[in-house]
C-alpha cells in the first residue's frame, strides 16, 4: 500500500507549489501526476485565450492554484465542481479556459491527473474519458488502499482558514 511520501519519492506523484503573495501561507495541498506536470509545463501554454479577456490560460491557472493552495475562498461551480458519477469522486478545478481533473484524497488535498483546454473538453465531450482516466490512475496508485473523498459536497473537499 502506497503513501503520498512513497509515491513522491518514487516519482509517481509530484508536489505542486506556487509562490504565494507575501504573508500568505499554504493552506491546501496539491499533487500531480507526471502527465499533469507536463500539462503545466507544455500543453497549458498552447491553449488559446477565449473566455477571459484579462488573463492568458497559464495566468488563469496560476491564479487558481494560488487561490487553492493559499486557502482563499473558492467558488463552487465556477472554480471547482464534482463530475458525474459522483460516487467516483472525480472533481475538476476550473478557470474560464482550462479544466484540471483529479480527486481529493482528503479534504484540502487534491491530486491532479490531467488538464485540458475547456473549449476542447466541452466540444469533444471529453468529461467521461477524463473521469475514467482519473479513476484508473487512482486505482493504479493504490494510495492508502485507494481512499478518496466521495460525493459532491463542496464542504467535504475544501476548507477555508478561520
Amino acid at each position: 500500500m502506497a503513501t503520498i511520501t512513497t509515491l513522491t519519492e518514487g516519482g509517481r506523484l509530484v508536489a505542486i507549489n506556487v509562490e504565494l503573495p507575501a504573508g500568505i501561507l499554504p493552506h491546501r495541498l496539491l499533487y500531480g501526476t507526471a502527465r499533469f506536470r507536463q500539462f503545466l509545463e507544455v500543453d497549458l501554454h498552447a491553449i488559446r485565450r477565449y473566455w477571459d479577456p484579462e488573463l492568458e490560460p497559464a495566468q488563469q491557472v496560476l491564479a487558481l492554484l494560488e487561490a487553492y493552495i493559499g486557502g482563499y475562498p473558492l467558488l463552487f461551480q465556477r472554480q471547482y465542481w464534482p463530475l458525474k458519477p459522483h460516487e467516483d469522486g472525480i472533481w475538476e478545478l476550473k478557470t474560464p479556459d482550462v479544466r484540471i481533473f483529479g480527486w481529493f484524497r482528503q479534504k484540502d488535498l487534491f491530486i491532479a491527473v490531467n488538464g485540458m483546454d475547456a473549449t476542447e473538453v466541452k466540444a469533444g465531450h471529453y468529461y467521461g474519458p477524463f473521469v475514467r482516466e482519473a479513476v484508473w490512475h487512482r486505482q493504479s496508485l493504490d494510495l492508502d488502499g485507494g481512499i478518496f473523498v466521495e460525493g459532491d459536497d463542496p464542504d467535504d473537499v475544501v476548507s477555508v482558514p478561520a
Binding site: 509530484v14 505542486i16 507549489n17 506556487v18 509562490e19 503545466l40 492568458e56 491557472v61 496560476l62
Partner: peptide, 13 residues
C-alpha cells in the same frame, strides 16, 4: 524530483 514550482515570468505573475 518530488516537488515542482509552477511559475510564470514576474510580469505575468
Amino acid at each position: 524530483m518530488t516537488s515542482f514550482l509552477f511559475r510564470l515570468d514576474p510580469r505575468k505573475t
